[in-house]
Simulated assay, not measured.
Amino acid sequence: MADEVCLATNIKNKDDQMDLNVKDGKVSMNTTSATVSPKDDAYVYAGFTNQTIYSCELNGTSSNNDNVGLCADLHPEKAKPNFYLLIMNGLRVLFTKSLAFSTILTIRAALT
């Protein structure tokens, strides 16, 4: 199983405690190895574990794992019909242009 990560940004204190809520309880991590973000002049810390993280908490602020299903709204089975509709619309445009060009050439030939 791959490692999971909880990213804490904008930490003001380098000696904080991060709690990762996993299946078997809590995993506590010390953020003393946090790095300084050059933009915000604050610390950034990534807490890694090989267990599934349900939520993480730092300084009373917590984040849960509700955003895991963001890709659930994608429907790859609808890609094929959309591709066919795109081709059909392209052929309609091509047919309309060729019909207009043919009509212009016919009128031009009839006038000369």
Rank of each mutant, 00 (worst) to 15 (best):
M1A: 03
A2C: 04
A2H: 04
C6I: 00
L7K: 14
A8T: 01
N10V: 02
N13P: 03
N13M: 04
N13I: 02
K14Q: 07
K14S: 03
D15N: 13
D16P: 01
M18P: 05
D19S: 13
D19G: 02
L20M: 05
N21V: 06
V22M: 07
K23Q: 12
K23N: 12
D24Y: 05
G25L: 04
G25A: 02
G25E: 08
V27R: 13
S28F: 07
S28C: 06
M29C: 02
M29N: 02
M29F: 04
T31M: 02
T32W: 00
A34H: 03
A34W: 07
S37K: 03
S37A: 14
P38N: 10
K39I: 01
K39L: 01
D40C: 02
D41N: 13
A42L: 15
Y43L: 05
Y45N: 03
A46F: 01
G47K: 00
F48E: 06
T49N: 11
T49Y: 11
T49P: 10
N50A: 05
N50Q: 10
Q51N: 07
T52L: 12
Y54G: 13
S55Q: 14
S55F: 01
L58H: 07
L58T: 01
L58V: 05
N59H: 08
N59A: 15
G60A: 04
G60R: 05
T61H: 11
T61F: 13
N64W: 01
N65Y: 05
N67G: 15
N67I: 07
V68T: 14
V68C: 09
L70T: 14
C71T: 12
A72E: 14
D73P: 01
H75G: 03
H75P: 03
P76L: 12
P76R: 10
E77N: 10
E77W: 08
E77V: 09
E77S: 12
K78Q: 13
K78P: 03
A79Y: 11
F83T: 04
F83Q: 10
Y84W: 11
L85D: 15
M88G: 14
M88T: 15
N89R: 08
G90T: 11
G90F: 03
G90S: 14
L91Y: 06
V93A: 14
L94C: 08
L94H: 04
L94Q: 04
T96Y: 09
T96G: 12
T96A: 15
K97T: 13
S98C: 07
S98H: 09
F101L: 15
F101G: 11
F101C: 10
S102V: 08
S102D: 08
T103H: 07
T103Q: 10
T103A: 15
T103D: 02
T103W: 08
I104T: 10
I104C: 12
I104V: 12
I104A: 14
L105M: 13
L105D: 04
T106K: 10
T106V: 13
T106Y: 09
I107A: 12
R108V: 11
R108H: 11
R108K: 00
A109D: 15
T112Y: 09
T112C: 03
